[in-house]
Amino acid sequence: MPVQPFRHSAPAPQPAPATGPSPLYRRYLAAQRRRRTWIWLSRFAVLAAFLLLWEIAAGRGWIDSMLTSKPSLLWSSFREMLLEGKLLKHTWTTTLETLVGIVVSMALGTVIAVVFWWSTFASKVLEPYVVVLNALPKVALGPIFYIWLGDRYSIYGMAVAISVIVTIMMVENGFREIGRSKLKLMESFGATRTQMLTMVILPASIPNWIATLKVNVGLTLVGVIMGEFLSSKAGLGYLIIYGGQVFQMNMVMVSIAILALLSIALYGLVNLLGAWLKRKNHFEG
């Protein structure tokens, strides 16, 4: 929050008096509100200006609409694809794959991080493998997943492969950052390893876990789209690749726009979940 622009000569009064906010404070609040409204309006204005410029440029022939398409064409092809039922089906496929990918890689990553926390020996032994797997471009594994898992399940393979390693490393790092002395306190009460895990390690790493989840959403989407590029017969990634092959720029761009909306929706969902988890566990502030 920016500092209030008005100065009081008296020391700041502690709680607000029962008479309600002072006129100065009310003016400050109104200014804040105006500012927020302006920011939102400007955001939409930027988008509108971009679309308008695009439309005009394509209409006047400044740019080749064969290559760039244009907003009005996108809109009609969006409605067309929607009516055919194609768009919903493909969007749903991608959404489901992403959600499953996120859940699986978060669960798997957390479990593996717990194993590493539990056994220092295991974590030391496996450390170089994790480093190598992290550095390896997971896309290179695409053909393997396709051959092993088939065109549908290879998507999940790719999604999890891309996001799980980072998840393990972030969650494990979070575990390590929890103060030694919180665990010493637990030890002084004679806590077992399981009790330390459930009473301190897991609850204390909720904020870190949420941060990991946010990173995971982005990575899993990359994995899903990558997987669909390589092998799938459905999903937004498939639509994009297919549209490119038959030179249907409308299809490509509509799919990309939907993908952008999907990622915003997922990110919003994760934010809500995170805020709820933090509030529930008193991590706010």
């Binding site: 103060g179 002395s181 919180k182 010493k184 306190l185 030890e187 002084s188 009460f189 004679g190 009473m199 301190v200 609850p203 204390a204 909720i206 566990n281 008193h282 991590f283």
Partner: peptide
């Protein structure tokens, strides 16, 4: 460790959750 002995550390380490 035994229940007979209680330990109080420099920081309170109250769990915020």
């Amino acid at each position: 460790t035994s229940p007979q002995v209680g330990y109080m550390l420099q920081h309170d380490h109250l769990f915020e959750w």
